[in-house]
């Protein structure tokens, strides 16, 4: 037991810093740019793991553990949903023709870069109304919020829009937990995340039936 807690205590500070932010920078573009559901669901799992680690910077480790449990439930719901609807691409087109990227993909990459830069500048200028969080947490959180909003804006499939909402909420949750760390708020935000995941699965099933 002691050795486990020692490992956790040693492991969390190492992985919850800039490494977690880097993981956010890598995984959120995958959610936005790529339509292959296998990659999207895999990237979501990695993203949720590192967002949970980022939460240890603003919440007690036990409460961050609750976030990890919530994200695990959300991911399982999404996984089951995708498994029911079929893996592969969200539409019929393969986006990469040999080495040539389609216009849609190029646009998304461009949008991800622009939005990422905007988020970065916002943190750099210190214009966020959240003074307590550390710089790297703020950087990760703003990336999550902005990339989530981008996903909301450009996606058409229920799954992607749902992921946009979840990513945006996870970023907002990071900033908000720093100023409102009460268990009740964390719990209710967790309930909202699970409810969003459930409703997205419902919409995805109906959308798939409709398109078929």
């Amino acid at each position: 037991m002691n050795s486990t807690s020692y490992i956790v205590e040693a492991f969390i500070p190492m992985w919850s810093g800039y490494l977690a932010v880097a993981a956010v920078f890598v995984t959120t573009p995958i959610l936005i740019v790529i339509d292959d559901r296998r990659l999207v669901v895999g990237a979501l799992a990695v993203l949720f793991l590192f967002v949970s680690l980022l939460f240890t910077n603003v919440l007690a480790t036990q409460i961050a553990g609750i976030k990890l449990i919530v994200y695990s439930i959300v991911w399982i719901i999404i996984f089951i949903c995708v498994q029911q609807n079929g893996w592969g691409y969200t539409d019929d087109s393969k986006e990469v023709y040999g080495l040539v990227l389609s216009a849609k993909i190029r646009f998304r990459i461009f949008a991800v870069i622009i939005v990422g830069l905007i988020g970065w500048q916002l943190v750099g200028k210190n214009s966020l109304p959240f003074p307590i969080v550390t710089e790297y947490v703020a950087l990760g959180a703003t990336q999550l919020v902005f990339q989530g909003l981008l996903l909301l804006a450009i996606a058409r499939q229920p799954l992607k829009i749902g992921l946009g909402i979840l990513v945006m909420f996870s970023g907002f949750g990071l900033l908000y937990s720093a100023v409102e760390p009460s268990l009740m708020v964390v719990g209710m935000l967790g309930v909202v995340d699970i409810a969003v995941a459930l409703v997205i699965c419902y919409l995805e099933l109906i959308w798939k039936t409709n398109t078929q």
Partner: peptide
Amino acid sequence: VAGALRYLAFVSI
């Protein structure tokens, strides 16, 4: 699903 998705997205924002 478009109307429901828009509604959900805007409330979430």
